[in-house]
Design a protein around this nucleic acid. Structure first.
Length: 465
RNA sequence: GGCCUGAUGGCGGAGUGGUGACGCAGCGGACUGCAAAUCCGUGCACCCGAGUUCGAUUCUCGGUCAGGCCUCCA
């Protein structure tokens, strides 16, 4: 079953056919590194990581090029640097490192490229020059603006009719714009802000052109897949597409001269308590991992279909932990079984290939876990192989099952628990049930649950502390 | 005002023109000294109205409700 993706521009699911199967390209808009990003920012990270893994499996690991950019030129970065009285680099390096650490916690592969705006400046300036040169952009009062009127099909991506948009606009239109929808490609820097020399005067780039330049420099245009959150659909992606279409004005397929598929993930919602940085109640990965493993956070982010909004709650995290308990439990009980080299389960793969239907794929994983629990003889190795290969295609079950259940215990606690479990086993062997039960109560007080099996007792921590 | 989504059991969440996945929670049973874990079984839902159809949760139209975007938010 071939991979199909919902393409925002076509407003339909389309079979995914890359321009060149030997060189599949994907670009996803990444964060502005001025602070820690909250868990919602990581939804696209995880979603497109699953797509990255699936593409690598389909077309070959070396055939897929994935670029996820970093915006390191921005007003918010400038403000933050000024507040702390440090150089801008100090801010961007700090939060870029934190961002990459979060990605690792969530089990996301490193993208092939992580382009940064500040390191793409020559390409940005050259690109603006080309747009000015072919009449798609104009200079006004020290700015360079993209001329949306020169772009015949401006609006086709987001479906925003330009007239309506202007009528409902809630922003004041800068006087130097020819048309209200025109947007900045280059603008003068204010005192203290980063500044670059350019043929249009000293200044800094607008947001949209940065992404287009980073795509062109890292992957080359057009790309196969352009991803990001739905909030970026307008104006950011619309503007990117317009820039791309005007760069390649004579391309045969103008519509797809920039990106062949547009994929947008839905928002993460935070229920009644709106998560906002000003309230200081944001959910940060570095804090969440104290409550639940990063793998469970990854699971939670994939519990719903990527295009649907997802409610981020404590219960969602708890349920995700239990879901992984189930899968790791099946692995733990088959610890002595060597996994056969089977590859992913066909039904599981079909679910993922159907526009990344992760909930359906997860349902298949539970079925595979039950198959492993109930299989006998040689069927166990095969069942274990299918479960592992399937789950790992989604970025799960790379961990050691024992570590999953006992990982929260330090050396001293572990020794104490092992001792209690051993003493309880002796009591049970002597059929001294009161003594055995009393030890079990002691273990429970240590947050330990003990499970008796045919080959002895095992234990797990009930809750992470 | 414009554009765009969505409405499924106690909760989360797929999917389908005709027996409504899956997980958690619940219930019954097996196993267990008792539990836990596991296995087997089971109760519970498709927003409202009209239309198309032999048949609609699924398609069409209307309504209600909820959410998003139109502001350099993933």
């Amino acid at each position: 079953m071939p991979l199909s993706l919902y393409d925002t521009q076509a407003r339909a699911k389309r079979p995914f056919v890359p321009a060149d199967p030997a060189r599949v390209t994907m670009y996803v808009c990444g964060p502005t590194v001025y602070n820690f990003v909250h868990i919602g920012n990581h939804r696209p990270v995880v979603v497109f990581d699953v797509l990255f893994r699936l593409l690598r499996r389909t077309f070959g690991e070396d055939a897929v090029l994935y670029a996820a950019n970093i915006t390191d030129v921005d007003d918010k970065i400038n403000r933050r640097a000024a507040e702390e009285g440090v150089a801008i680099d100090v801010i961007t390096e700090r939060y870029l490192a934190a961002y990459n650490a979060d990605m690792a916690e969530l089990g996301a592969l490193r993208p092939t490229f992580q382009p940064r705006a500040t390191r793409t400046m020559d390409a940005i300036i050259a690109l603006i020059g080309r747009l000015v040169g072919n009449g798609s952009a104009y200079a006004a009062e020290g700015h360079v603006l993209f001329d949306t009127q020169a772009c015949a099909d401006y609006g086709v991506l987001s479906g925003h009719p330009m007239d309506e948009m202007i009528a409902g606009a809630r922003v004041e239109v800068a006087p130097y714009k020819r048309h209200p929808a025109d947007f900045v490609l280059w603008k003068p820097s204010k005192p203290g802000e980063p500044v670059w020399d350019s043929p249009f005067g000293a200044g800094r780039p607008g947001w949209h052109i940065e992404c287009t330049a980073m795509i062109e420099q890292s992957l080359g245009l057009p790309i196969d897949i352009h991803g990001g959150g739905v909030d970026l659909l307008f104006p950011h992606h619309e503007n990117e597409r317009a820039q791309g279409a005007c760069l390649h004005d004579h391309a045969q397929d103008r519509d797809r001269a920039y990106a062949r598929y547009w994929v947008h993930n839905g928002f993460l919602n935070f229920g009644e308590e709106k998560m906002s940085k000003s309230q200081g109640n944001v959910a940060l990965v570095k804090d969440l991992v104290k409550v639940a493993p990063g793998e469970a956070l990854r699971w939670a982010l994939l519990v719903g279909h990527y295009r649907a909004p997802l409610e981020w709650t404590g219960d969602l995290i708890a349920q995700s932990v239990k879901a992984l308990d189930r899968l790791y439990g099946a692995l733990r009980r088959s610890a002595g079984v060597a996994a056969a080299d089977t590859g992913p389960d066909p039904a599981f793969l079909a679910a993922l290939e159907d526009d990344l239907n992760t909930p359906a794929a997860m349902a298949e994983l539970f079925g595979l876990a039950t198959a492993l629990e109930t299989a006998t003889g040689p069927g166990r190795a095969e069942a274990k192989g299918r479960l592992l290969a399937s789950a790992r295609l989604m970025g799960f079950l790379y961990g050691d099952p024992e570590a999953w259940f006992q990982g929260g215990a330090n050396e001293a606690l572990r020794a104490r628990i092992d001792d209690l479990v051993a003493r309880r086993s002796e009591a049970r062997a002597a059929k001294d049930w009161p003594a055995a039960d009393q030890i079990r109560d002691e273990l429970a007080a240590l947050n330990v649950e003990v499970m008796d099996g045919p080959s002895g007792a095992t234990w797990r921590l009930k809750e992470r502390t």
